[in-house]
């Protein structure tokens, strides 16, 4: 019999878990309110390359979710934290809509490269500039390495191909900061005074949410909403701690089984 863990924190994915586009998952607001009654910290974690925290926050508030902007932790926040830890001046290859999350950073005379999804910056000239900086020793920080994404008019290249190209040109490896990287989950917990063993992650992406969290030492709960496809739970090893219908069920499980008091 496994010793009961103390649960101190719940990390929750946004898109696909709390809402799908402009619609909340049924019962999700109420479930979040119930979770907040329990003695656990709550954080909202997401991979984003073009939406700043404020945009995400306003969308969730618009859907009547009870949360604070500082409870949101994104791959952009993770990139910013890494830039601050390294005390470097980044060349920011991110879209204008994401720049807000980097305000206050020194970016003149750059000695680091942060690469997100920024089609406007993925031209020959800017990539050459990034290449020369990396060759001179600048660290390459990637928000994530997605191959492509879906747009209304078809598929479009994500940041991954450009990161891979720069890695090849310079014979270096990028530091990837978004999900499913272990560092992402650890960084999300950093100010909660909580170890990974004391946290659970809820998300709709088996590999990026659940697999990543479990790889970092947390429990992972997969919800069958958003991008979930049948048999996704079988795609990761070890399998999710729990697979359930949707966010409200995940909250019920946490309240009933992961928190000591019934």
């Amino acid at each position: 019999m496994m010793a009961r863990r103390t649960l101190k924190a719940v990390l929750i994915d946004l898109s696909g878990t709390l809402h799908i586009e402009d619609t909340a998952v049924p019962g999700a607001q109420e479930a979040l309110a119930r979770l907040r009654q329990a003695p656990v910290a709550v954080k909202f974690v997401t991979n984003t390359t073009k939406e700043c925290k404020r945009t995400l926050f306003e969308r969730l508030r618009g859907l009547n979710f009870d949360l604070q902007q500082q409870e949101i932790f994104t791959s952009l926040t993770a990139a910013r934290n890494l830039v601050e830890q390294k005390a470097v001046r980044p060349l920011l290859m991110v879209e204008d809509s994401a720049l807000e999350d980097f305000t206050g950073l020194e970016t003149s005379d750059p000695n680091a490269v942060v690469i997100g999804l920024a089609p406007d910056h993925f031209n020959y000239q800017t990539l050459n500039k990034a290449f020369q900086l990396i060759l001179d020793g600048a660290p390459l920080i990637a928000i994530h390495k997605a191959r492509y994404y879906k747009k209304k008019d078809g598929l479009a290249l994500g940041p991954g191909p450009f990161v891979t190209g720069l890695e090849y040109a310079t014979d270096t490896k990028a530091t990837v900061v978004g999900k499913p990287e272990k560092g992402f989950f650890l960084e999300a917990l950093r100010d909660l005074n909580c170890s990974p063993e004391e946290a659970v992650m809820i998300g709709d992406d088996a590999r990026d949410d659940v697999g990543g969290a479990q790889n970092a030492g947390m429990l992972g709960i997969l919800v069958k909403t958003g991008k979930y496809r049948p048999a996704d739970e079988g795609k990761i090893n070890p399998p999710p701690h729990l697979t359930c219908a949707s966010f409200p069920e995940a909250v019920n499980y946490i309240l009933d089984h992961l928190l000591g008091s019934k």
């Binding site: 191909p161 190209g165 040109a169």
Partner: peptide, 11 residues
């Protein structure tokens, strides 16, 4: 080669 790698990775 850099763009070859990018397309190799993407596809």
């Amino acid at each position: 080669g850099v763009y070859m790698k990018a397309l190799e990775y993407a596809c």
